[in-house]
Amino acid sequence: MGGRESDMVLLDANGIRCDGRRIDEPRRIMIKAGGLKNADGSAYIEFGDNKIIAGVFGPRDVHPKHMSDTDTGILRVRYHMEPFSVSERKNPAPSRREIEISKVIKEALAPAVMLEKFPRTAVDVFIEVIQADGGTRCAALSAASVALADAGIPMRDMVAACAAGKVADTVILDVNNEEDQAGQADMPVGYMPNLEKITLLQLDGVLSAEEYKKCVETGINGCKLVYELQKKALQEKYFQNGGQQN
């Protein structure tokens, strides 16, 4: 098993990857909370060359009404890639892949969001991928989590996400587009750092039991790095002045 044939050297003899990173080094990550005036909460993330905006509305009335639940609120997520987000124009209509990612992000956020506090309402999360470079679902999930916190939706914990994978028989952190295309395995991990619980785990490729364990561990370490940046983003927006309140 081993991805697509490629001439690219994914990992050289010194343990340096195709984009110059070490095996346990993530790409450059920048997260900003807020930014959209009309949404209740929003966040912008740059994860390597990925550029993603997330906007949150709610809790608000559910339309169509039949979707509402008398016991709890509902969470709706739309992940969408802009036509210009990839090198060849992408049809803006929701594709099979986008529908799947919307579903997995929703399910990864659901354990964190305390929707039971708002029966008969909906929380809508909109994610727009402006530029894609592999690992968008992890970046999108991390941004969505910050946007939810920015909107003031009660959450048990933040959800941070980062991918791990395998190239040239080595487990690596934060798989980029080339490694995703030509590598041996890709494992996106969503994680609640304080509760120490995994909310998203997918795997594309084949791993031995040992590699699998190592991949999960590597992914979780990546999530912890992302969490620190999520925390910083929220602190920058809300407590910038040292947070003196009287």
Binding site: A149, G243, Q244, Q245
Partner: peptide, 14 residues
Amino acid sequence: MDGRRRHVIPGEVV
């Protein structure tokens, strides 16, 4: 800010 008041984000242990 005294020790009893602290800035927190979701998930942080108070």
